[in-house]
């Protein structure tokens, strides 16, 4: 019930969102946001005792990942983000390379599939154009820790096995359409089982030591030492996401990395 109310409120606000440069694009239905949290995120690698539990304020999150349809509308409104114009430091050469043309999806790409092959900079620019932002890692993980029926599903063994089964399955030849997995407690879908997703602070992952210990910091921070510090050694999916994020650079694009946008909760109130 609360989720439904949030969707309606956010739709009302977000219908203005594309008009930043005089372009008035209809907000795709898929972009509707729901309220998530407040809650507590327990990082797998707290860098200090003070960070063992991170309080996450209530925030808004796209119910579904951003789709090809959403993103092609964006690059048509913002041609500087088309693949033949984007600066190389903002997106590598794989950027949107699966599309038929810089602003055309083509017959092999469904507009309801999650957009992939987008860089962090491009994802940020898209969310910014919607007057939204990328979710922080703590926000994304909080949302992703909910099972279908519980805000905190991490102790739900069956649910955890289900996620691991998704992670273990080969990539399908064609990416499924967004909305193909059930909504979680907050009403958010596809956080697991479809694509990896960018977070705003992807480049803060696995920093559990201070750079002052120069010389030894790589070993302490990234290698075997990290696994010893993990707070929840059974949480393989979380472990995998951290490993994946720490491998990313902001211009990277790949065939199964997409994103969704978030916003501050006060936008609902306003």
């Amino acid at each position: 019930m609360r989720a439904v109310a949030s969707v309606l409120a956010v739709l009302a606000v977000s219908s203005l969102a594309w008009g930043v440069r005089g372009q008035s694009l209809p907000l795709a239905r898929e972009a509707a946001m729901v309220r998530v949290g407040p809650g507590t995120y327990r990082p797998l690698y707290p860098s200090s005792a003070a960070e063992a539990e991170v309080r996450v304020k209530a925030f808004l999150l796209d119910r579904l990942p951003v789709t090809n349809g959403d993103f092609v509308a964006f690059v048509r409104a913002r041609p500087e983000w088309q693949r033949d114009r984007v600066p190389g430091v903002f997106a590598d050469e794989g950027y949107l390379s699966h599309w038929a043309a810089p602003a055309e999806l083509g017959a092999n790409v469904d507009e309801r599939q999650p957009v992939v092959r987008v860089s962090w900079f491009a994802a940020k620019a898209y969310c910014s154009a919607r007057q939204a932002r990328l979710p922080a890692e703590a926000e994304w993980e909080l949302a992703a820790s909910a099972s279908r029926t519980r805000a905190d599903g991490r102790d739900d063994r069956a649910w955890r096995e289900e996620i691991l089964a998704w992670y273990s399955r080969p990539n399908p030849q064609r990416l499924p359409l967004v909305g193909s997995t059930p909504a979680n407690y907050w009403g958010v879908q596809d956080l697991h089982g479809l694509v990896w997703e960018w977070v705003l602070d992807f480049n803060s992952a696995m920093l559990s030591t201070d750079a002052r210990r120069s010389g030894d910091k790589e070993g302490l921070t990234f290698c075997g030492g990290g696994a010893i510090n993990a707070t929840d050694k059974g949480n393989y999916p979380s472990f995998m996401r951290i490993a994946f994020r720490s491998s990313l650079r902001a211009a990277y694009t790949t065939h199964n990395l997409g994103f969704r946008c978030a916003g501050d909760d006060r936008e609902v109130v306003r």
């Binding site: 990539n171 694509v195 490993a243 994946f244 491998s247 199964n256 990395l257």
Partner: peptide, 21 residues
């Protein structure tokens, strides 16, 4: 995966996948 991405970070690429296979 964690070891490779950390210790060889200058050579990491873009082909990470959410499946174990």
């Amino acid at each position: 995966a964690a070891g490779v991405v950390g210790c060889r970070e200058r050579t990491v690429g873009t082909s990470a996948a959410p499946s174990l296979d």
